[in-house]
Simulated scan of single mutants.
Amino acid sequence: MNALTVEELATPLRALRLLATDFTHLPAPTIRVTDIFPSRLELSFHGDADDLGGFAAFETWRQALRVEPDAVEFAVQSGGRTHVLSAYAGFAGASVRLVAYGPGAQAPTGAEVA
Score class of each variant (00 low, 15 high):
51 D>L: 10
1 M>G: 14
105 A>F: 07
15 A>Y: 04
33 V>G: 07
65 L>N: 01
87 A>N: 03
57 A>C: 11
65 L>R: 02
35 D>F: 02
73 E>L: 11
64 A>K: 03
99 V>D: 00
21 T>R: 13
76 V>C: 05
105 A>S: 10
57 A>I: 10
39 S>G: 09
32 R>V: 11
54 G>V: 04
35 D>T: 11
106 Q>L: 10
77 Q>N: 12
9 L>A: 02
104 G>F: 05
99 V>C: 03
51 D>N: 15
8 E>L: 08
92 A>D: 14
9 L>Q: 09
58 F>K: 10
103 P>D: 07
112 E>C: 06
23 F>I: 07
3 A>N: 15
103 P>Q: 08
81 R>Y: 05
51 D>Q: 07
106 Q>A: 15
109 T>A: 14
29 P>V: 08
43 L>K: 01
24 T>W: 05
86 S>C: 05
44 S>T: 05
79 G>A: 12
96 V>T: 01
21 T>N: 13
24 T>E: 14
32 R>L: 10
77 Q>F: 09
83 H>S: 06
38 P>Y: 02
57 A>W: 12
29 P>G: 06
23 F>H: 15
80 G>L: 06
22 D>E: 15
47 G>N: 05
18 L>C: 03
40 R>W: 05
54 G>S: 09
3 A>K: 14
84 V>A: 01
91 F>L: 04
78 S>G: 09
67 V>H: 03
68 E>A: 15
84 V>Y: 02
69 P>M: 10
69 P>K: 01
55 F>C: 02
106 Q>M: 10
36 I>K: 11
89 A>V: 02
98 L>I: 04
39 S>N: 13
47 G>Q: 07
106 Q>C: 09
69 P>L: 02
62 R>W: 02
21 T>S: 13
23 F>C: 13
74 F>C: 04
